[in-house]
């Protein structure tokens, strides 16, 4: 459905994306992961026909992204990474404006989405918070019930409750057979919605793979605080991979040997146990080793 073929877009400062290839099949939810500035938005700009590739090509539904842009837009919904609207309009005026520009009449879906995301649509966009603007952007992208969705960091600025509702919406849309490309720098978000993901770093695709296999390769880390030096010695002797975080605190890394960690810790006097936040960096450690991050 979405096909990117050896796409390069090189800017005058030498940055950009290089030789990016991946495809998203019909009905698939595909994650596009990478740290800020890795080239996610640059790639997406080419998909939307905003920029012309330096070399290579991309197409959506078999139509070339740069030359058949208006046709593609018929069935595409897009959430930009940077929200910029017509500031003097209220949320509702803006959504009406976009529907009119699209020539669409049915507003039932839009109104359902407004309820769902609890948007105060009569407020001026200029006066809205970041999260509210994001909601306007999401509803505008979904309200014409497009078959394909391109979402550039869609949960940016949303509070945790709204993030949850958004993820639920994505899962529902997936069940309805939508094709979705979603960029993010948060692994967890992609983990909950996508089947496959591409990882981009410094403009180059590092991996395109199943989320499940990315996950198994992802090392989890636990911050363990123990009572004394003797416990540290036990952990050292166990063969677990770890870092000393403090005098009596260690960070233990595991990928799937939970049993070993549990049995080791069972023998220790553990005073606290925390799960460290999973970040993309941990995936990069896997692909590049530590020095690459």
């Amino acid at each position: 459905m979405i096909e990117i073929n050896k796409l390069s877009k090189i800017y005058s400062n030498g940055k950009g994306v290089f030789d990016v290839s991946f495809r998203v099949s019909q009905g698939e939810v595909f994650g596009f992961l990478g740290p800020n500035g890795a080239g996610k938005t640059t790639t997406i700009r080419n998909l939307l026909g905003f920029t012309s590739p330096t070399s290579g090509s991309c197409s959506i539904g078999g139509l070339d992204c740069r030359t058949k842009t208006a046709e593609i837009q018929q069935k595409l919904g897009y959430v930009p990474g940077e929200m910029a609207f017509f500031d003097n309009m209220t949320g509702m005026q803006f959504m009406k404006f976009v529907s009119d520009m699209r020539g669409m009449k049915d507003t039932k879906l839009r109104d359902r989405l407004i309820d769902r995301f609890e948007l105060e649509s009569d407020r001026k966009i200029r006066k809205m918070s970041k999260g509210m603007k994001q909601k306007v952007g999401l509803i505008t992208a979904f309200m014409h019930d497009p078959a394909i969705l391109i979402l550039d960091e869609p949960t940016n600025g949303l509070d945790p409750l709204m993030q949850k509702r958004f993820i639920k919406l994505i899962i529902e849309e997936k069940q309805r057979g939508k094709t979705i490309l979603m960029s993010s720098h948060i692994f967890d978000e992609v983990d909950r919605t996508c089947e496959r993901a591409a990882i981009i770093r410094e403009g180059k695709i590092v991996a395109v793979s199943e989320i499940a296999s990315l996950k198994s390769s992802l090392r989890k880390s636990y911050l363990v605080t123990v009572a004394g030096i003797s416990d540290i010695e036990k952990i050292k002797a166990s063969g677990l991979e770890f870092n000393m975080a403090d005098d009596n605190r260690v960070e233990i890394f595991i990928s799937n040997d939970y049993k070993k960690m549990c049995s080791t810790l069972a023998a220790c006097n553990v005073t606290s146990l925390d799960v460290a936040v999973q970040t993309l960096e941990q995936i990069f450690i896997r692909y590049y080793g530590k020095e690459a991050v």
Binding site: L48, Q73, V98, M101
Partner: peptide, 11 residues
């Protein structure tokens, strides 16, 4: 950046 919305409207 609001141009993005104008161009995402089948025009």
């Amino acid at each position: 950046g609001s141009m993005a919305y104008l161009l995402c409207t089948t025009n």
